[in-house]
Design a protein around this nucleic acid. Structure first.
Lengths: 203, 203
DNA sequence: ACCTGAACACCGTTCAAGT
DNA sequence: ACCTGAACACCGTTCAAGT
């Protein structure tokens, strides 16, 4: 963990932002509102968080600390394709099965799809999405460092995998999830093969 | 099509917005910028498009219908990959953009995800899903008849493509859809390439 | 009905100034 | 280094006023 007193005001800002996000996930955190809630000036807020996006990323990253056990990408005993598939399975698992999956998508729907003016709450969701895509990019980057080629740009591949996982994830919340389960692995395998197209010579 | 003269300024606004979106899909269209580009006042723009979101939805909906003909799989003037991509775009388009996409997913959510006993209403959904997958299988079968090989079984490929389209579709209903628009084609292209992996010798 | 442009209430970021 | 608050350049929306 970080030291509890990285800065008193920095923490106050983070706490204020996290509280406001918790109270109303679809509100957007303006500089002035967060600064007022934290009892600091806008300039002081900017001193610790040079940009508003950085504040958002930091606060949602803090909220996300409950995950990430051990990274399957580092397990050299398996092939690159198998490892990437395991990573995707990890992402997919975080969405849950059955009732949990449904509850998850209901929360997502109520926060970001149902509201009449969804663009206002976009920032929180987008920074969360960026977190997931960053993770995918890091995994692909790790494989690239081993000499494994990717089909196209890394960010395009990451977006592709993200969409695949999203599709499978929402299907888990829809009826007939049990029937589709057998297709999940074949779909993930196709997605992995699409991304790791070139030569994958593992030693 | 609509009458060419629904309103001269309305069209000018739409054209200006579409042009700006084409130049830089990541940029956000401000009222003043679009109005200036179209040569009209902000108030006039607001008269036809009461809200900025409405403008966005209208222009992206227009861009989509502009590049979709009918029955793309039979168009032999294009390559198999291009045709399959066009088919997927067709599926994606049926989900709608912006407000329509959100409304669509809300209906789906309320019918099949939210209810406590989702297994009761499953039948309707499953038959609808089967319809979409059948369509994908027919497309893939048509390409196979031309001698185009698919990676793996047809039903597995169809399920894969179905998940990809589902993922992109739900992302259209989530915040930041406009930003992700540029990745849609690259994702679809990767998915098509994954499915049509083998030799695709036409003629 | 169509169109204008000023006005209102915001926004994120910058920066000279203090401590 | 930390902090302030004014200032700048935006933003979307509203609205009295013209045609």
């Amino acid at each position: 963990m970080d030291e509890p007193t990285t800065s008193d005001t920095r923490s106050r800002i983070l706490v204020a932002a996290a509280t406001m996000l918790g109270e109303n996930p679809m509100a957007r955190l303006s500089v002035r509102a967060v600064a007022a809630r934290a009892g600091v000036s806008t300039g002081s807020l900017r001193h610790f968080f040079p940009t508003q996006q950085e504040l958002l990323d930091t606060v949602v990253a803090g909220l996300q600390t409950l995950e990430i056990p051990d990274d399957p990408i580092a397990d050299i005993s398996k092939s690159p394709a198998e490892r990437l598939e395991a990573c995707l399975q990890l992402l997919l698992a975080s969405g849950g099965h059955g009732a949990a999956a449904r509850q998850n998508w209901t929360a997502l729907h109520d926060s970001y799809i149902a509201p009449p003016a969804p663009e206002t709450s976009a920032a929180a969701f987008l920074s969360l999405e960026r977190l997931g895509i960053r993770r995918l990019e890091r995994w692909l980057g790790a494989l690239q460092d081993e000499g494994v080629g990717t089909a196209g740009e890394v960010d395009a591949c990451a977006r592709f995998l993200h969409s695949v996982v999203n599709g499978l994830s929402v299907e888990r919340a829809l009826p007939g999830a049990r029937t589709r389960l057998s297709f999940e692995t074949s779909t993930l395998r196709l997605a992995v093969a699409a991304v790791l197209s070139k030569d994958h010579d593992a030693t």
